[in-house]
Design a protein around this nucleic acid. Structure first.
Length: 234
DNA sequence: TTCGTCAAGAGGGTGA
DNA sequence: TCACCCTCTTGACGAA
């Protein structure tokens, strides 16, 4: 049986993960509703609606085209369904495939509905505006959840690669520290005696330890690693 | 029986 | 204050 509604598999995901824009999660959810006069069917979000849930079998829409029935709800039916057993949830409404398809289509066009759009869609789908509103709310939440999950996966991967790089850099630091503790012995090209550490420097070309030079005082000595080419400046 | 999905309720936040 | 949204939760329902 097709228990999975089309909405479950048709999540529209348009996130650009690598950017990780801070607006993720709420992007696309900008409220564009206008405060037009919306009739009472969508106000209150169920607060104060009392027994708002109805045992409407939307999979078998009203046969006589009596839209008022689902717009206003049928209290009599409500009472019958609920019986005398006190408050309990009525049967769960399952939207028909066609209703889901149309809702998905609307959602693709717009993630939020103006009151007029909501009203029109509700009439078209033979649902109450409140139901359309709830469907869009849940749909936005599902989209955001998927978005967050993808973001989470991306961050996990980032964490993995950063951890790896961190390890590599720490190894490098350790190596450099080891070099600092026991610098290589460099013999003076003149005296053939080991030079003190203070007389050593890093060759900028190959980044190896060489005898330090002081250009102001003495002419740079040739690197033990890179015998200096004759330069016209000297 | 358990688990995932989803419509709907509840409560809080926000902008006009 | 109102209308709307978001988030969390609840409970019905179908599948495994």
């Amino acid at each position: 049986m097709g228990a999975t509604s089309p909405s479950a598999s048709g999540l529209e995901l348009t996130m650009a993960v690598p950017g990780l824009s801070s607006s993720s999660g709420s992007e696309g959810f900008v409220c564009t509703t206008t405060n037009n006069n919306i009739n009472s069917s969508s106000k209150g979000h169920g607060h104060g609606h009392g027994n708002m849930m109805r045992d409407l079998d939307m999979n078998q829409p009203a046969s006589g085209g009596e839209e008022e029935d689902f717009l206003m709800g049928s209290v009599e039916e409500d009472e019958e369904e609920r019986g005398a057993g006190g408050p309990h949830r009525p049967k769960k409404l399952r939207l028909s495939k066609e209703q889901s398809r149309l809702l998905e289509e609307s959602f693709r066009l717009n993630h939020t509905l103006s009151p007029k759009q909501k009203e029109a869609l509700a009439i078209k789908l033979k649902l109450r505006p409140r139901q359309v509103e709830v469907w869009f709310q849940n749909r936005r939440a599902r989209t955001k959840l998927k978005h967050t999950e993808m973001e989470c996966e991306y961050l996990k991967r980032c964490f993995g690669s950063l951890t790896e790089e961190n390890r590599r850099l720490q190894r490098e630091v350790e190596e450099l520290r080891a070099m600092r503790v026991a610098p290589p012995t460099v013999l003076s090209p003149h005296t053939r005696q080991p030079l003190p550490a203070s007389a050593l420097s890093m060759c900028p070309r190959c980044e190896r330890i060489t005898a330090a030079t002081s250009p102001r005082i003495t002419r740079p000595t040739a690197s033990p690693f890179h015998p200096r080419r004759p330069s016209p400046a000297f």
